[in-house]
């Protein structure tokens, strides 16, 4: 397999990587860069645990190959806020969403994207947009409540 040498930008920091051209961003980020907040759940785009932002949009990093990356900016869960003050993080904490927590990086990254794309999502929109993110611990009711609360706060 061809090895690519490339400069990539993650969380506003440049990294020089040298990795197989087909490697998914998931494992590039975890094993080569060492940022482990992005999680592996299925490797097939079925669970959402590996969600990151590419140019601000949610993407499943297990499906995105290194060679398809041009010079897009990547954001992982570690990069959404320096002091854990991103509104989604704050509301997640307020509603005590996480149980085992394993799926939560992905949930948060998808929720941030959703809130960028919809200014007033309905309950149904929230459920539809979040449905690709699985949670085995059953945190769905709190995810829904947290997002709704955030929307209310924003409006007031």
């Amino acid at each position: 397999m061809k090895i690519l040498k490339k400069r990539i930008n993650i969380n506003s920091k440049d990294y020089q990587v040298e990795a197989p051209e087909d490697i998914s961003l998931l494992w590039l980020i975890r094993d080569h860069i060492g940022l482990t907040g992005t999680k592996f759940g299925c490797g097939k785009g079925l669970c959402g645990a590996c969600t990151i932002h590419i140019e601000g949009r949610a993407n499943r990093s297990c499906l995105y190959k290194l060679k398809d990356l041009k010079d897009e900016q990547i954001t992982t869960i570690e990069g959404i806020s320096e002091k854990d003050q991103h509104p989604v993080q704050v509301v997640w904490n307020k509603f005590q969403v996480a149980q085992c927590g394993y799926c939560q990086s992905g949930q948060i990254m998808t929720a941030i994207d959703l809130l960028k794309r919809f200014s007033k999502p309905t309950k149904d929109t929230i459920r539809k947009e979040m449905k690709g993110n699985l949670c085995r611990c059953g945190t769905y009711p709190r995810i829904e409540k947290a997002i709704e609360a955030l929307l209310k706060e924003d409006r007031s």
Binding site: R30, G34, L35, T36, G37, T38, K39, F40, T76, I77, E78, I80, S81, D84, Q89, W92, N93, Q96, V97, A98, G101, Y102, Q104, S105, I108
Partner: peptide, 23 residues
């Protein structure tokens, strides 16, 4: 009473370490 869980922040910022993250 229900104070925040001690592991709640690290589970929202990517810092929670699971075995799979060991390097």
């Amino acid at each position: 009473t229900s104070p925040n869980r001690v592991d709640s922040i690290i589970k929202s910022n990517g810092k929670a370490l699971y075995a799979i993250d060991i390097d």
